[in-house]
Lab assay of single mutants.
Amino acid sequence: MAAAAAAGAGPEMVRGQVFDVGPRYTNLSYIGEGAYGMVCSAYDNVNKVRVAIKKISPFEHQTYCQRTLREIKILLRFRHENIIGINDIIRAPTIEQMKDVYIVQDLMETDLYKLLKTQHLSNDHICYFLYQILRGLKYIHSANVLHRDLKPSNLLLNTTCDLKICDFGLARVADPDHDHTGFLTEYVATRWYRAPEIMLNSKGYTKSIDIWSVGCILAEMLSNRPIFPGKHYLDQLNHILGILGSPSQEDLNCIINLKARNYLLSLPHKNKVPWNRLFPNADSKALDLLDKMLTFNPHKRIEVEQALAHPYLEQYYDPSDEPIAEAPFKFDMELDDLPKEKLKELIFEETARFQPGYRS
Rank of each mutant, 00 (worst) to 15 (best):
A6M: 07
A7F: 09
A7G: 09
E12I: 06
R15H: 13
R15K: 02
G16L: 07
G16W: 15
F19I: 00
P23W: 15
P23G: 14
Y25D: 06
Y25I: 10
L28N: 14
S29I: 03
Y30D: 11
Y30S: 07
E33C: 13
A35M: 04
Y36K: 03
C40M: 14
N45E: 10
N45L: 10
N47P: 12
N47Q: 05
K48E: 03
V49I: 13
R50A: 08
R50Q: 10
V51P: 14
A52E: 02
I53P: 12
F59V: 08
Q62T: 09
Y64R: 05
R67S: 01
T68N: 05
T68P: 00
L69N: 14
R70T: 10
E71C: 09
K73R: 06
L75R: 07
R77W: 02
F78K: 09
R79F: 09
E81I: 11
I83Y: 11
I84W: 04
I84P: 15
N87L: 14
D88V: 06
I89E: 09
I90V: 11
I90E: 15
R91N: 15
T94G: 11
T94I: 08
Q97V: 12
M98P: 10
D100P: 11
D100S: 15
D100Q: 14
V101F: 04
Y102F: 01
V104W: 04
D106G: 15
D106I: 15
L107Q: 01
M108E: 10
E109I: 12
T110P: 01
D111V: 01
D111E: 02
D111H: 08
K114W: 04
K114H: 06
L115C: 12
L115T: 14
L116G: 11
K117E: 07
H120A: 09
H120E: 09
H120V: 11
L121D: 03
N123D: 07
F129V: 12
Q132T: 07
L137T: 11
L137K: 05
K138M: 10
Y139V: 07
A143G: 11
N144M: 09
V145E: 00
V145G: 09
L146I: 13
H147D: 07
R148W: 03
D149Y: 00
L150C: 10
L150S: 04
K151W: 02
K151L: 03
S153K: 03
S153A: 11
N154G: 03
L157I: 09
T159F: 07
T160S: 00
T160R: 05
D162L: 13
L163Q: 00
L163G: 12
L163H: 07
K164V: 08
C166D: 06
C166Q: 03
C166N: 07
C166Y: 00
D167T: 04
D167R: 07
R172S: 03
R172T: 04
V173C: 07
V173Q: 02
A174S: 01
D179I: 11
H180K: 08
H180F: 04
T181H: 08
T181M: 08
L184R: 05
V188K: 02
V188N: 05
A189D: 05
A189L: 02
T190P: 02
T190Y: 05
R191N: 04
R191V: 03
R191I: 04
R194A: 04
A195P: 03
E197P: 03
I198V: 03
M199A: 05
G204M: 09
Y205H: 04
Y205R: 01
D210I: 04
W212G: 01
S213M: 10
G215K: 01
L218F: 05
A219H: 03
E220W: 03
M221A: 06
M221C: 11
M221D: 02
S223Q: 03
R225W: 14
R225Y: 15
P226M: 04
F228N: 09
G230M: 10
K231A: 11
K231P: 09
K231T: 06
H232S: 11
H232G: 11
D235V: 01
D235L: 01
Q236W: 05
Q236I: 03
L237F: 07
N238W: 03
N238Q: 07
N238S: 05
H239F: 07
L241V: 10
G242V: 05
L244C: 13
S246I: 03
E250A: 12
N253L: 06
N253Y: 02
I256M: 07
L258E: 09
R261C: 06
R261D: 02
Y263Q: 08
Y263V: 07
S266D: 13
S266C: 00
L267Q: 01
H269N: 01
K270R: 03
V273T: 15
P274E: 07
N276K: 01
L278F: 10
N281P: 15
N281D: 09
A282T: 05
A282W: 14
D283M: 14
D283P: 14
S284W: 11
K285L: 06
K285T: 08
A286D: 02
L287K: 12
L287G: 06
D288I: 07
D288Q: 11
D288A: 07
L289E: 05
L290R: 01
D291M: 08
D291G: 09
K292F: 07
K292T: 08
M293P: 05
M293I: 00
F296S: 01
N297Q: 05
N297C: 07
V304A: 05
V304T: 13
E305G: 13
E305F: 14
Q306E: 12
L308P: 03
A309W: 14
A309Q: 14
P311D: 13
Y312M: 09
L313E: 03
E314I: 15
E314K: 02
Y316V: 08
Y317Q: 15
E322D: 07
P323H: 01
I324S: 07
A325W: 12
E326W: 11
E326Q: 08
P328L: 02
F329L: 00
D332C: 14
M333T: 11
K344G: 05
I347K: 01
E350F: 15
F354Q: 06
F354K: 07
P356C: 15
Y358S: 07
S360C: 09
S360A: 01
